[in-house]
């Protein structure tokens, strides 16, 4: 078909967590600009399988930019060159015929590579389990409209809660810090009356686990915000810093 492209892929291949891994080169032929990036990889994989080679393993699920499963560093950027999209929403019309594309997994000590482009993001889970919740048992809730929440707070909380937990912030951060991820959750609850009761405990517990999991510290480069497919703001990190200091330094 006219307008289709031929590309060269340089892809990180790693058999399993203990393999050292290396970059290998594959051609991607006759790629339609209407394909998503992952569909392009599907095409390459189908060829690899038929050639008797191992297909490239990559995480993906919803393919509509909301599940947060897809996670790849494309040409030096988390989720590729476009702002505000995940790899599954990145379409091949963003590339030109003849381009070489480097595809790597998220890089962080806290995200060990499981295979090829797939990393283990359990560390993010652990942070959530430490405090990313409001302690309310099923059935014990008051009427939903019993506590009015100012629209600004509700909207800000929503903006923070829009995080899809993909880990692009960690991948893009030169320190592999998960502050944006964690602060989004801390902020969501800090902004809502429902979350206030255990705010101090939440932020201290979550940060403790964040540090234990081997994520780096934030140095305010703001790369996380720039690369976040959901546009989560670093003002959440500021809020979390505030919350944490208040929780730790306030007298008892």
């Amino acid at each position: 078909m006219s307008g289709n492209m031929n590309l060269t892929l340089k892809v990180w291949r790693q058999k399993n967590a203990s393999d050292t891994g290396r970059i290998e080169t594959y051609p991607a032929k006759n790629i339609s600009p209407d394909m998503s990036f992952l569909e392009m990889l599907d095409v390459v994989n189908e060829d690899l399988i038929k050639e008797g080679k191992d297909p490239i393993a990559f995480d993906h699920d919803c393919r509509e930019g909301i599940c947060g499963m897809c996670s790849m560093y494309i040409n030096g950027r988390a989720h590729g060159p476009n702002k505000g999209v995940t790899a599954c929403q990145l379409h091949m019309r963003s590339f030109k015929n003849g381009d070489t594309i480097i595809i790597e997994p998220w890089r962080a000590a806290a995200f060990p590579v499981l295979r090829d482009l797939i990393v283990d993001r359990t560390a993010l889970e652990k942070i959530q389990q430490a405090g990313g919740f409001v302690s309310v048992n099923t059935g014990s809730a008051p009427d939903a409209n019993a506590i009015p929440v100012p629209k600004w707070n509700a909207d800000e909380a929503f903006n923070a809660a829009a995080c899809i937990g993909c880990g692009a912030c960690v991948a893009a951060c030169k320190n592999s810090s998960a502050m944006l991820f964690m602060s989004a959750k801390v902020s969501q609850y800090a902004l809502l009356p429902q979350g206030k009761a255990e705010a101090k405990m939440r932020v201290t517990n979550m940060l403790k686990v964040h540090d234990e999991q081997g994520f780096g510290a934030c140095t305010n480069t703001e790369a996380c915000e720039a690369e976040c497919p959901k546009g989560i703001s670093v003002s959440n990190i500021a809020r979390m810093n505030r919350e944490y200091a208040a929780a730790m330094l306030a007298g008892e």
Partner: peptide
């Protein structure tokens, strides 16, 4: 009610 109490930002 339950979701609001959990902090779901409707």
């Amino acid at each position: 009610d339950q979701c609001v109490a959990q902090g779901v930002p409707f």
